[in-house]
Amino acid sequence: MDEISILKETFGPDAAPSPEAEQRAREALRDRMAPRPKAAWRLRIPIVVGLATSAAVVAAVAIANLGGAGPAVPVTTPERPQEQTQAAAKVPYLRPVNAAQVLENAAWTVEQEQWTDPAPTQFMYVETLEMRNPPAYEQKAPNGALLPGKAKYRKIQKWDRIDGQVQATMRNGKLETLRQGQDGTYFAFVPWSQIIKLTSPEAIAAYLEHPEGGVMAVPDALAGQYVLPPEVKAAIFRYLAQQPGMTVNPDAVNLDGHPAIGLGRVMEGYLSQELLFDKQTYTLIGERLIAVKDESGRGDGRKGDLYRQVIYRKMAIVDRPGDTG
């Protein structure tokens, strides 16, 4: 999916953004993104970037615990919650005191999951909930903080074929499918042959230095955008545990009724990019981008501003686009 298609999907047929808004969106996101290594596309947010273009559209900003932000939508829960609760009592750290211990609990949790290797023709299905500002405001402030009481939930459904050649999304209730190279459009996708090699923190570090296929997703993005084998997701959590500056955000977070622990690192001196884990099961349930200090120098961001929050609803391997597991 190209950038302009994403913007059209976001704003809908009745509120298309102006060219000036599109350009502001691209420039704002580019300012927030770290420089890319040569010949590699770095994916940090759950938006697929067209390889045929150099600009990126602004990420959806979101937050789930703002008053008046729309109806709650239940997060998918395990089929056997009692068994998972019992398993959670066996995690390595019953009362984790730092980010490394929370991440080790999360790694242990995913290692208990059952897994069957997918066929190249099967699809990764990822369903998320995002919160979005009203379209008119997004045109004026495409990369601004979420407006309390005005942002609304939006369900995102995406299917990526394991071989990276087909991608599908649900738009306005209609399933739309793209193929690599169709009408000159290309979408970034980390090769499955690369993904299955990421079974240790050392392998992940090597991948970040030399990504296969010239497409790189930072570990945080891999964990939220791809349906991963348990050993790969566990390795990602253990890799993150080794990174300097990884901390537990002491602020309470509530994702649709699920108390969550926020783990992340501060970027640009004031933004905390966090993964959110269920406090009892240590399952990864979302992500957010929050200002932990006042922005200085180039903007008007204030401590407590929320720029992004996503709830991970469902991740599954399915046979065809439209299937949800």
Rank of each mutant, 00 (worst) to 15 (best):
E83T: 14
Q101E: 15
Q182F: 08
A119Y: 09
E130A: 01
R313A: 06
A168N: 06
A72P: 00
D251T: 07
L7N: 05
I285D: 05
P135I: 03
P13K: 07
P259Y: 06
Y153K: 03
N105Y: 04
N172R: 00
R32H: 08
L129D: 00
Q86F: 11
R265A: 14
N172Y: 00
P35F: 07
I195H: 04
L240H: 03
P96Y: 09
Q243T: 08
R313C: 04
P259E: 04
V102I: 14
D251E: 13
V253G: 03
S296R: 15
E287R: 00
V75G: 07
R161V: 05
K197R: 12
Y186C: 01
L222G: 02
I261L: 06
V102R: 07
A15T: 05
D300Q: 10
E176F: 01
V61C: 03
A136E: 11
E274I: 05
V61A: 05
P96H: 10
R302P: 03
A89H: 13
E22P: 05
F277C: 06
D256Q: 14
A16F: 11
K155T: 02
R179Y: 01
E113V: 15
D305S: 08
V97A: 13
P19I: 09
D300C: 05
K150P: 01
A106L: 08
D160R: 14
V97N: 09
K303I: 10
D251R: 09
A107P: 02
P46E: 05
I285S: 07
Y137H: 13
G286Q: 04
A119Q: 13
G184M: 08
N65A: 02
P135F: 02
P135A: 07
K90T: 13
Q167A: 15
G269A: 14
D300T: 13
